[in-house]
Simulated assay, not measured.
Amino acid sequence: MKKLPLLLIWSRVAFAAIVITLSILKPSYFRTIIITLIALGLISDIFDGIIARKLNISTPKLRRLDSTIDQIFWLAVVTTAYIIDPVFFKDNILAIAIIIGLEAICYIVCFLKFRKEVATHALSSKVWTLVLFATLIQIIAVNHSIVLFNICLYLGIVTRLEIISIFLIIRNWTYDVPTVYHAVLIRKGKPIKRHKLFNG
């Protein structure tokens, strides 16, 4: 049972490889299969942390691995969407570049300051992940997204800026920092309350 969170985390690597392969080969019902696998990946992402906390095995090492695999999984999903609909990405290249650039800055700031990967698991980022999921599903399903994409863009900017702010505020690397407010409390040496299900 204690290996279940780890299995859920690594399952997303398998899903990542499969969805990219399907987007290239385009077999019958490939869009439906890809969307199903992405949904399963999202579910695994939600429950790996919940189960780990329930079993009291939510260690820094596990949370760092979770964050790294998340990046691999979502990069694969974005790549899949690009392969299926490259025109959408070319038409929105600037907006997409901004998000990717901010994501890269998050990792650069974290690594330069702490020599470790991003593992804040901020609550706003969890919301953004759901919006990103919906946006990519819409692109994959119908080769189109306007309202959802714009929401995803601006929410992505806000959440990436929040993560960068968290890194600039805290003195020592820590994982599962829900918000900037919690980062300020951590800097002051005060205890913070984390949600049992979603953040520690």
Rank of each mutant, 00 (worst) to 15 (best):
L132W: 13
W173D: 12
Y181D: 13
R115G: 06
T135Q: 03
I108T: 11
I72P: 06
I192R: 08
K190Q: 15
D70R: 06
C152N: 13
I186K: 10
L136Q: 07
I108K: 10
H182C: 12
V180F: 01
L112R: 15
I96S: 01
A104G: 05
H144G: 03
I139D: 00
V147Q: 11
P178A: 07
P191D: 04
N150Y: 15
T68L: 15
Y107A: 11
I96G: 00
S67T: 05
A183F: 06
G189C: 07
A183I: 08
I93L: 11
H121D: 02
L132R: 12
T129F: 12
L153Q: 02
R63E: 12
A183K: 06
L155Q: 07
H121G: 01
F133G: 06
K116Y: 09
K190P: 04
I192Y: 09
Q138L: 07
L185G: 01
I169C: 10
I100A: 15
I137Y: 09
A76F: 01
L75M: 12
N172I: 08
T68N: 12
T159F: 07
I146D: 14
I69N: 02
I192A: 10
F88W: 06
S145L: 02
A81I: 00
A183D: 00
V78P: 06
A122I: 05
C152I: 08
T129D: 10
L185T: 05
P60V: 09
K90N: 14
Y82E: 03
F198N: 01
F133R: 05
L185D: 11
R194Q: 07
F73T: 07
A134G: 03
V180L: 05
V180E: 05
V118T: 14
Y175Q: 10
A119P: 00
L161Q: 04
H121A: 08
Q138W: 04
H195L: 12
V180C: 04
D91F: 03
E117R: 11
L148D: 03
L112D: 11
I137L: 14
